[in-house]
Simulated scan of single mutants.
Amino acid sequence: MVEAFPEVDINTIARSVTRDVFKIGDSAEIEVYDVDSLSSTYIVDRAGNITFPLIGTIQVAGLNTTELQQRLTQRYGQEYLRNPSINVKIESQPLGRVVVDGAVNKPIVFEVSEIISLSEAIAQAEGLDQTSTTGNSVFIVRSINGERKVREVNLKDIRRFGAEDPQIIPNDVIFVQDSAGRVAFREFLRTVPLLNTAVIFASRN
Rank of each mutant, 00 (worst) to 15 (best):
K106P: 09
L63P: 05
N145R: 06
E91A: 10
V141I: 06
S85H: 11
Q59N: 05
L155A: 02
K89G: 01
V88Q: 05
D101R: 02
I140C: 04
Q130D: 08
E152K: 15
G77P: 01
R159K: 15
V104M: 07
G162Q: 01
L95N: 09
D101N: 06
V60W: 06
V99H: 03
N136K: 12
D157I: 00
D129R: 03
T66R: 12
I108R: 09
R71L: 13
F139A: 03
Q69V: 11
I86A: 09
T66P: 01
I115V: 01
T65D: 05
A163L: 09
I115D: 02
I58A: 01
S143G: 07
G56V: 13
Q130G: 08
I116K: 08
Q59T: 05
A121L: 04
T133C: 06
P94R: 15
S85C: 04
I116Y: 10
I90S: 02
E67D: 09
F110K: 02
I86H: 07
G162T: 01
Q167E: 12
F139Q: 01
N145K: 07
E120L: 07
D157M: 04
A163H: 04
N105V: 14
E120G: 04
P166M: 13
S143E: 15
R97W: 14
I158F: 07
L128Q: 03
I108E: 05
D157H: 01
V141Y: 00
R142P: 10
T57G: 06
T66K: 12
N105T: 13
R82W: 04
V109H: 11
E152M: 13
G127D: 09
R75G: 02
R151M: 13
I140E: 01
T65N: 01
R82E: 04
I58D: 00
D157T: 04
I144Q: 00
V60G: 08
G135E: 12
N136M: 11
G77W: 08
G77T: 07
